[in-house]
Design a protein around this nucleic acid. Structure first.
Lengths: 233, 233
DNA sequence: AAGTGGTCTAGACCACTCC
DNA sequence: GAGTGGTCTAGACCACTTA
């Protein structure tokens, strides 16, 4: 009937997706339950479950116990963005990466930062400003602070060979984090650093990571004008 | 031993994550195989599999048949961005949404577009320019074309009550799409439409969706200055 | 050749929630 | 109360890859 002989969860998912996309199952419609679909496809319920669970995660189906499964009315789509270390992003484009450290210093955390990031009292912060280059052209201007109480080892790192970005990814595991994407008009200082015209628009990525309830690092990455981040839907 | 009495895949995943985050298992280390962990946790292998599979998807583990499972050296993190319809995004912030249509017309596709999007020959396109407002303030300036051969029904839609954005999400299911995020300096026309200063930086989202190999629609959304997109890590 | 993850099965119990 | 999805189990076979 279905033309799908093999009973892999992928093939079942394909078939379910087809029924949704081709409007065989209309938005809002109730779809058969797992047992019935398992009978129809001649497979175990667990296999149908895996196929449907993933469709629900991606937003195409809405599932509720007892109420059953329905085709989503407004499928909220999700874009999955990779956030690689910058060196890898540059090199994956076939360009040569290097960095320059503009500033590195240690200072006590201000009251505002202490509150905002729930830092310990009298916490000292490592402050960093650096530029990542791709084929000798400025790629990202990075401003960062690192909590020395969360990651005391950084005090002995010079970040000359391995960027702070990369060092932290490798050495400061985090339990959760936040990312903000925005656009900003470059200040004249930023424009000079990035070797572009003042007032150009830059793509900005701000990231904060935590381990438990302790903040590790916060960074603001200002990308060169023309930068685009891409994702599949 | 582990202090985790219940054998849900979530609790096992928590425990595995703890071992990774607390460096009990170092980056690059081989971790025990599924059977051994199942023995250790006193559960079925499938349960361990579900826990580890998801950790691999999120980038913390690297799994290969026969080679086994290792802690990722450079965990590439993923940001999962929700791309809701704009009305819902506005209303979820407690603001009132409305839109204004600036232009709506039908024209034949240029050679460039026909090639770029693999449109059928002599394809007619619906061209739209509109503004989404949040509490009467410009929120997004949307420029869009829609393939009339992919979605012939739109010719009879006026998009006055339901925006094109929303109508398409509901009525034009797609099999895949592409999203590009970038920043752009507003032209004076764009700035006037958004009621902001010329040259301000705007967050730009460009989206194209396809059904099979046929392009449905392409849109360029220019967000008001100050807009931020947020995501958890 | 052998070890590992990837998947499927048939059955079971449970948690939730609608009626 | 009953129907649905969520999960776990014990076992099996397979696909892949390294040794």
């Amino acid at each position: 009937m279905t033309g799908h002989p093999s009973n892999t969860w992928q093939s079942i998912q394909e078939e379910l997706k087809r029924r949704i996309v081709e409007r065989e199952w209309q938005p809002g419609d109730q779809v058969p339950n797992e047992s019935d679909l398992a009978d129809e496809f001649g497979c175990a319920r667990a296999t149908v479950n895996r196929a449907m669970r993933q469709l629900a995660e991606s937003g195409l189906l809405v599932r509720r116990r007892k109420a059953g499964t329905r085709v989503a009315l407004n499928p909220v789509r999700h874009a999955k963005l990779e956030i690689p270390i910058i060196r890898e992003e540059v090199e994956s484009r076939g360009l040569e990466w290097h960095q320059a450290i503009l500033e590195k210093g240690i200072s006590p955390a201000s009251d505002r930062l202490t509150r905002q990031y729930q830092l310990p009292k009298n916490c000292r912060l490592l402050h960093l400003r650096s530029v990542h280059f791709a084929d000798r052209k400025p790629y990202v201007y990075e401003t960062r602070w690192i909590s020395l109480s969360a990651v005391p080892e950084v005090e002995n790192e010079d970040f000359e060979t391995v960027s702070a970005n990369e060092w932290l990814v490798r050495n400061a595991p985090f339990t959760h984090g936040e990312i903000l994407f925005s656009a900003a008009k470059m200040t004249s200082e930023e424009a000079e650093i990035m070797a572009v015209g003042a007032g150009d628009a830059a793509f900005v990525l701000e990231r904060t990571t935590w381990i438990g309830d302790q903040a590790i690092t916060a960074a603001r990455m200002i990308y060169h004008p023309g930068y685009r981040k891409r994702s599949e839907l």
